Amino acid sequence: MPGRRESRKDKWRVQYAIEARSLQKRFGDKLAVRDIDLVAREGEILGFLGQNGAGKTTTIRMILGILSPDAGQCEVLGSRRPLEIAHRIGYLPEERGLYPAMTTRDTIAFMGALRGLPLADGRRRAAELLERYQLGAEVDAKIRTLSKGMAQKVQLLGSFVHEPDLIILDEPFSGLDPVNQQALEDIISVQRQRGATILFSTHIMGHAERLCDRLVVIAGGQTRFTGSVAEARGVLPAVGALLAERPVPAGLLPGDAYRAEGGEWRFSVPDDGVDRLLRALLDADVGIRDFSVERPTLHDAFVAMVGDPEAEDARRDAAVDAPAGEVL
C-alpha cells in the first residue's frame, strides 16, 4: 500500500538477525553487563570485541537465552524466545568440550542432532565437511587422538552442520596456532557466503580486521563503539612522519609535532589532509628526505577505546606467577 509506514516489528525482522538493547546482568554484587546494545544485520559478520572479563560471554549467553537479562530486551531471528529456535542457531562456546571416545563423524552428527538434524543426515554431512576441510582421513578417528587444533575444528564444524541462519562463536581462535587460525577464518568466510549471519567474540584484533563487516566494542560491561572497521580506525588520527635535511621553521608543522629518535618529525595529520602542509614544506626548502602517512590499525583504535589487552594479559600472567605475598 503506497505510503504505508514500516512497523518496528517488520523492520526488526527484515534487517536484523540480533537486536539487543540495554542489556544488563548482575551476579551478586557485581554488575557484569551494564548497558550493552548489539545489533547484527542479516548476512553480515559482526565482531564482538573486548578485553577478557569485559562481559562478552555473559552477553552472548543472554542473546542465546542461556541467561536471562536483569534489564533490557533481545530478539534473535525475530523471536524473543531463542531457545525455541535453537535449530536455526549454531553456537561454539568459549569452554570447549567433546566426548573423547567418540569419532569425529559421530561428534559432528551428534551436535547436529542436538539442533534437530536427523542423525543419518548429520553423519553424511559430517563426512562431507571433514573431507572439505582437510580432515577426511580422520573421519573415524577418536577425538582423544586429535591435536587441539583438529579438535577445535571438529567442534566448529559441529556448530553449523545443521546449516543454521545464525552462528555465534565465542573466542573461536583462542589457543590456536597461526595455521589453524587461518583455517578457521576460511571456514567462517564460507559460512557467510552461504548466507549465514555470524557473530564472533574476540580480543585479537587481526581476525576482526580481516573478517568483519562491522564491530561492537565493549569495556566494563558497556558498549563503547559500534561501526565498521574503517570507522573504528578513524577514532584516531593518521600520523605523519617527516625526515628533513634542514631545520623545519617553527609553527610549520601541526601543534603536536615532536622529534623522535633519529631526527624524524612525527605529528597528527591535519583534518584537511597533507597537501597544504607539503606545499609549505617545499616552499620552506627544508629538504624532504622522506615523508609518509601511517594509518592507525584496529589494535591502535581498540587500545585507545578500552586499553591494551596484551598488556592486561601479561599483567594477569605475572600476578599468577608471582611468589606468595608479593604485590605486583
Rank of each mutant, 00 (worst) to 15 (best):
L23T: 11
V33Y: 14
Q24H: 02
I18R: 03
Q24N: 01
V33A: 15
L23E: 13
A20Q: 03
F48R: 06
Q24V: 02
F27M: 03
F27R: 04
A17F: 08
E19M: 00
L23N: 15
A32G: 07
K25Q: 11
E44G: 06
Q24Y: 01
A20C: 05
I18G: 06
L38M: 11
E19K: 01
Y16I: 01
Q24I: 00
D35A: 00
A17T: 02
G47E: 09
D29C: 00
L23W: 15
D37W: 15
G43K: 08
D37A: 13
L46D: 04
L31D: 14
V39T: 09
V39Y: 12
D35Q: 01
R21M: 11
Q24P: 00
I18P: 03
R41C: 09
G43P: 05
E19W: 01
A17I: 02
R34D: 13
D37V: 08
F27S: 03
Q24A: 11
G43Y: 12
L23G: 14
G28C: 00
F48P: 09
Q24M: 06
F48L: 05
V39C: 08
S22E: 08
I18K: 03
G28M: 00
A20R: 03
A20N: 04
I18W: 06
E19N: 01
V39S: 10
G43E: 08
L38I: 07
V39I: 08
A40W: 09
K25T: 09
G47M: 12
Q24R: 10
R26M: 12
S22L: 01
L31A: 13
G43Q: 08
L38E: 05
L38C: 08
E44N: 05
D29E: 10
L23C: 15
G28T: 00
F48G: 06
K30N: 14
A17M: 04
K25W: 10
K25S: 12
F48V: 03
G47I: 04
G43H: 09
F27V: 02
L38H: 06
G28W: 02
E44C: 05
A32C: 05
R26C: 13
A40H: 10
I45H: 11
S22Q: 10
A20H: 06
D29V: 00
R34K: 14
S22G: 10
D35K: 00
A40G: 09
S22F: 06
R34C: 12
A20P: 02
V33L: 14
Q24D: 01
R41S: 10
D37H: 15
R41H: 14
E19F: 02
K30T: 12
V33C: 14
L31P: 13
E42R: 15
A20G: 08
F27D: 03
L38G: 07
R34Y: 11
V39W: 08
L46E: 04
A40R: 05
D29L: 05
D29F: 01
S22R: 11
L38V: 07
A32V: 11
R41W: 09
V33R: 13
F27K: 04
I18F: 10
I45A: 09
L46H: 11
R21K: 13
E19S: 02
K30A: 14
Y16K: 03
L23M: 14
E44V: 03
A40L: 15
I36V: 15
D29Y: 06
G47T: 05
V33K: 13
R34M: 07
R34P: 03
R41E: 13
D35S: 02
F48N: 06
F48T: 03
